[in-house]
Amino acid sequence: MFFDQSPYECRVEWGRRGAREAAERGDIIIIVDVLSFSSTVISALRKGAIIYPYPRTLDGKKFAEKIGGEFILGRVEAARIGSPTLSPVSFSKDHTNKKYVLTSLNGANCTWIASQVPSLLIGSLLNAESVAAAANHLQKQTRANITVIPCGEQWESSKEYEDTLRPAIEDYLGAGAILSYLEGKKSPEAELCMTSFLHSKDKLNDLIWDCGSGRELRGRGYEADVNHCCRLNVYQTVPLLNKDHFVEYL
């Protein structure tokens, strides 16, 4: 196919369709949803929580009951009763070894779509260098190509003839950060994504703080989430999907 970025070892594809295409190729996949699925999974795993990704279209509460876990509610509802939420700063050591079912429109759905690949990792700005190092190691072991998936957002109130994917710059910058540490030969699409990050590296905080997704979260009172998620390489935690939940890649 003309659009599969062959014969390059490191590629970038957007959203759910990109996740499916990469999964069908059997690539090593890195899911990037900076605000906030990826950052939340990384932060939660670092605190010892056990995260089960689950798509919004299925009954997450029923699945949580099946595994003996807790279904993560929306930010406002969960905060009201003191439970962890999709907010990455809501997890603490109190949640160690507890099971949580986490849904989201973008990151969780992309993870679900690509869940059958041999190696699916979660990346963001928080762990960009570490997740790239894990992918580099896996590539040497398996000879598989690597596809980085910036998940993007969804347009609200889209018409039936319109695409719902809204590209999000925070995910593009997160993907570019990861690509900058990958060792394989990069496609033109991956090169451009990486270059965008390198050009913007010194002003990540300002760009993400004031981008559409950042302003949306800040407008709802979640400034701490935005500040947390735009930090670069502060964690070495790399979530790896193990069947239906994440474990730390070692």
Rank of each mutant, 00 (worst) to 15 (best):
K93V: 13
G69W: 02
S130E: 03
F63C: 11
I122T: 03
S87Q: 12
E13G: 01
V101S: 00
I30P: 00
D210Y: 14
N127I: 04
S187Q: 05
L58E: 12
E65N: 13
I208V: 13
R166G: 09
L125A: 03
A78C: 14
T40C: 07
A64S: 12
N106Q: 11
K61C: 10
Y181E: 02
K66G: 15
A44H: 02
T57V: 15
L204A: 09
G18D: 03
V226I: 12
S90A: 15
A224D: 11
K140N: 14
Y181L: 06
T147W: 01
Y181C: 04
G152A: 09
Y235Q: 12
A22P: 03
S39W: 03
S92A: 11
G212N: 14
N127V: 08
R166D: 08
G214V: 04
R166H: 13
E129I: 09
I29F: 02
I149V: 12
R143V: 08
E216C: 15
G107A: 09
L217Y: 04
A79H: 10
Q139K: 13
S87L: 09
G176Y: 01
G123N: 06
D59Q: 14
K93M: 14
E162D: 12
P7M: 04
H245M: 13
G69I: 03
L207G: 06
G82I: 13
I122S: 00
D27Y: 00
G152W: 00
C110R: 01
I208A: 03
T103L: 10
E24F: 05
G214L: 03
S87M: 11
F37Q: 00
R80V: 13
L58R: 14
A78G: 11
E162N: 12
T111S: 08
L192V: 13
G69L: 06
